[in-house]
Amino acid sequence: MSSASPHPAPGPARRTVVAAAGAAGLAAALAACGSSDNASDSVDPGSGSSGSTGSAGTGSTGSTGASQGSGGAALAKTSDIPEGGGKIFKDQGVVVTQPTAGTFKAFSSKCTHQGCAVGSVAGGVIICPCHNSHFSVADGSVKQGPATQPLPAEKITVSGEDIKLA
């Protein structure tokens, strides 16, 4: 007769304990990289804007981006985007800016340093809260590291007062 039991001893299995520890670590890492607020951030420009003329009524951005959004529904109204500032649309993964009057730009809201979501727009820059990288509202270029690559441009269209992802 055998003294070894075919059933494991009562209590949590080793795999359960390891999985729970891994899940807790993942939750802590995600909390450190993310923003605590799920609402879109809209910030007035911190520094004065020159009010120079732009291409009124035309939306423009650079190259294609990763977020292909809702071609039908408007993302925002042009009046929602402050001149010299911008607004972050977390659900669409995009930040829309108005560097000069009537000129609208869009960029990925994912920081190129470590992939955190950018958190605010102020003083003519888009700011990542994780490591304080700053990006230009005009072209997405790095104004302050540690990021070394610009934010990728997203395509938008402006029709009347409506701004839509292209």
Score class of each variant (00 low, 15 high):
93 G>I: 03
140 G>H: 12
62 G>Q: 06
114 Q>F: 00
67 S>F: 07
61 T>C: 08
141 S>T: 14
24 A>V: 10
62 G>I: 05
40 S>A: 15
57 G>L: 08
40 S>V: 05
114 Q>K: 10
106 A>G: 03
29 A>N: 02
78 T>R: 14
77 K>F: 01
71 G>S: 15
160 G>N: 14
149 Q>D: 15
79 S>F: 03
17 V>K: 11
86 G>P: 08
60 S>G: 13
150 P>I: 03
147 A>K: 08
81 I>P: 00
63 S>F: 09
59 G>A: 14
38 N>L: 12
133 S>H: 08
139 D>V: 02
86 G>L: 04
110 K>M: 06
149 Q>A: 15
141 S>K: 13
71 G>M: 07
93 G>P: 12
90 K>L: 08
47 S>A: 14
55 S>Y: 13
154 E>P: 00
141 S>H: 12
108 S>M: 09
140 G>S: 11
103 T>I: 00
121 V>G: 00
33 C>W: 06
103 T>D: 13
46 G>A: 15
104 F>Y: 14
98 Q>K: 06
96 V>E: 00
143 K>Y: 01
40 S>Y: 04
136 S>E: 09
32 A>I: 08
38 N>Q: 13
151 L>A: 12
85 G>F: 02
43 V>E: 15
131 H>Y: 06
25 G>C: 03
109 S>F: 04
100 T>V: 15
148 T>L: 11
89 F>P: 06
131 H>I: 03
127 I>P: 01
143 K>W: 02
100 T>S: 13
95 V>S: 03
90 K>A: 12
121 V>R: 01
26 L>F: 03
53 T>W: 13
94 V>R: 04
121 V>Q: 01
155 K>M: 04
82 P>C: 03
105 K>A: 02
28 A>R: 09
25 G>H: 01
74 A>R: 14
157 T>R: 15
73 A>V: 05
104 F>V: 02
35 S>L: 13
69 G>C: 06
73 A>P: 06
148 T>Y: 09
29 A>F: 09
136 S>A: 12
40 S>F: 04
117 A>C: 04
143 K>D: 09
120 S>E: 11
131 H>P: 07
147 A>F: 10
86 G>S: 07
26 L>N: 00
29 A>C: 09
37 D>A: 11
80 D>P: 03
149 Q>S: 15
18 V>D: 09
155 K>T: 06
56 A>H: 11
121 V>L: 01
27 A>M: 09
21 A>S: 05
144 Q>P: 00
63 S>I: 07
138 A>N: 14
132 N>P: 01
88 I>A: 05
92 Q>Y: 02
57 G>P: 01
140 G>P: 07
82 P>N: 02
124 G>N: 08
126 I>P: 04
25 G>I: 00
68 Q>V: 05
128 C>I: 07
59 G>Q: 09
75 L>C: 04
160 G>I: 11
48 G>M: 13
76 A>C: 05
26 L>Y: 00
134 H>A: 14
80 D>V: 05
78 T>N: 01
159 S>L: 01
59 G>V: 06
40 S>N: 15
158 V>T: 07
65 G>K: 07
159 S>A: 13
22 G>P: 00
120 S>T: 09
132 N>F: 07
115 G>I: 07
118 V>Y: 04
68 Q>L: 10
49 S>W: 10
100 T>A: 12
108 S>Q: 06
135 F>H: 10
148 T>H: 11
126 I>V: 15
118 V>D: 00
47 S>W: 10
